[in-house]
Amino acid sequence: MKTDTVITKPLLEIDKSIDALVKQIELLSFVNPTNIEEEKARFFSSKYLTQPVFKYPDINFDRFKLHRKLFKQQIELIEDERIKNLYEDIIYTYSGLIKCIETIGSGKKFYYNSLHCFGTPTEIDVENAKYILHFEDEDLDSQAFAPKYNAKEAESFFRAYSEQYDFTYHIKHSDKISAIAMVSNNAKTLVLNTNHVYSDNEIAVLTNHEIGVHMVTTMNGLLHPLKIFSHGFPNNEETQEGLAVFAEYMSNNLTVTRLKELAYRVIAVNSLSKGYSFSKTFRLLHNQYDLEKEAAYYITVRAHRGGGFTKDYLYLTGLKKVYDYYHANKNLSLLLTGKVSLEYADDIESLIEKGLAVPAKHITDAYAENSNTNKTVDFILKNLK
Rank of each mutant, 00 (worst) to 15 (best):
T8R: 00
K9N: 14
L11E: 01
I14E: 04
I14K: 05
D19P: 00
A20P: 03
L21E: 04
L21G: 04
F30A: 01
F30S: 00
F30D: 02
V31W: 07
N32T: 09
N32L: 07
T34R: 06
T34M: 11
I36Y: 07
I36D: 05
R42N: 09
F44G: 05
S45E: 15
S46N: 07
S46T: 08
K47Q: 12
K47H: 13
Y48A: 00
L49T: 15
P52T: 07
V53L: 14
V53F: 09
P57C: 07
I59M: 10
R63P: 09
H67N: 08
R68D: 13
K69V: 07
L70Q: 06
Q73G: 06
Q74K: 11
I75C: 03
E76Y: 13
L77E: 12
E79A: 12
D80I: 12
D80Y: 04
I83D: 02
Y87S: 00
E88C: 11
D89Y: 02
I90Y: 03
I90C: 05
I90M: 00
I90F: 02
K99A: 11
C100K: 01
E102P: 02
T103N: 15
K108Q: 15
K108S: 15
K109S: 15
N113I: 07
N113P: 01
L115D: 04
